[in-house]
Design a protein around this nucleic acid. Structure first.
Length: 271
DNA sequence: ACAGTAACCTGTTTGC
DNA sequence: TGCAAACAGGTTACTG
């Protein structure tokens, strides 16, 4: 589900809702997520104060008095803030209880994960052994092009490669390639400087626009308060196969790359 | 080492 | 209507 704009929306919500509060208790109702939930998670979290909430790519990082919670929402993960009186629903796997509110981690497909770590500054695999978040100050045109030129895979695949660029998933890779006017099947290392520049220059504006809209909701995604995003109403190509391109009027086409659907305009996006 | 595919899981939509 | 197949915001383990 959630790519960078959706996760950023949730992160901002958490900063507003849970900063400086204490975790009273934690309820692990189903430990079978992407990776088994650590069996000492409850003891690690209880009585810890929440000092900060940050994000890298699609991973949310909650800084505690001791250590950090890393949270990934997979495809269908949600965090919902509810009153202490509310009862668990189906697929509510973890409940983190604060004094006046409870955080429900709900995940239908269980592709997400939650873990406690104290190694955020070292080589934590989920957080620091990957590529750069596009909002990282070290994420430059030179960084991006040096990565893209080293690989022969289709550019679409590399835009979703977390070892290059964290946070871009299927929706925003589709959107980015439309904005840059690039065919998703073009080989990464063969892109011209101009095309690389177009990709780079469209990343931040695209992600900012989507975040301003509260992200995109295809089906499951909602923010902490259960509210859907609205950026899906502005998608130019995603899920629009057979419909006319909003720019040139030609029909949007769909192709499968690496088992993922890709939507593109055959006139606006060329080799 | 690299590139491509299959698998993890549940729910909804599509097609026969 | 019923039932099976296809498909969905992600990531990684396996295959050639």
């Amino acid at each position: 589900m959630p790519e960078l704009p959706e996760v950023e929306t949730i992160k901002r919500g958490l900063q507003h809702e849970i900063l400086n509060q204490c975790i009273i208790s934690t309820d692990v109702r189903n430990p079978n997520l992407r990776w088994p939930v650590q069996n000492d998670l409850t003891e690690r979290l209880n009585n810890q104060k929440i000092l900060d909430v940050s994000r890298k790519g699609k991973v949310i990082c909650i800084k505690l008095t001791e250590g950090y919670i890393l949270l990934h929402l997979g495809m269908t993960g949600k965090i919902l803030i509810k009153s202490p009186e509310s009862t668990p629903q189906k697929h509510d796997h973890i409940i983190i209880k604060l004094k006046n509110k409870h955080l429900f981690y709900n995940d239908i497909r269980r592709f997400g994960y939650i873990e406690w770590t104290n190694k955020i500054d070292k080589a934590n695999i989920q957080f620091n052994s990957k590529g750069l978040d596009p909002f990282d100050k070290n994420f430059t045109y030179d960084y991006l092009t040096s990565k893209l030129r080293k690989s022969k895979v289709k550019i679409k695949v590399n835009l979703m490669n977390e070892k290059i660029l964290m946070g871009i998933g299927n929706i925003y890779a589709n959107a980015l390639l439309f904005r840059a006017g690039i065919h998703p099947c073009e080989q990464s290392n063969l892109l011209t400087d101009l095309k690389m520049r177009k990709i780079f220059e469209n990343i931040i504006p695209l992600l900012n626009e989507a975040t301003d809209m509260g992200g995109s909701t295809l089906r499951d995604y909602v923010n902490l308060n259960g509210i859907k995003g609205t950026f899906q109403n502005y998608h130019k190509v995603y899920n629009r196969s057979g419909l006319p391109c909003k720019s040139c009027g030609k029909n949007i086409e769909k192709i499968i790359i690496s088992n993922r659907s890709n939507f593109y305009c055959p006139f606006c996006q060329t080799f």
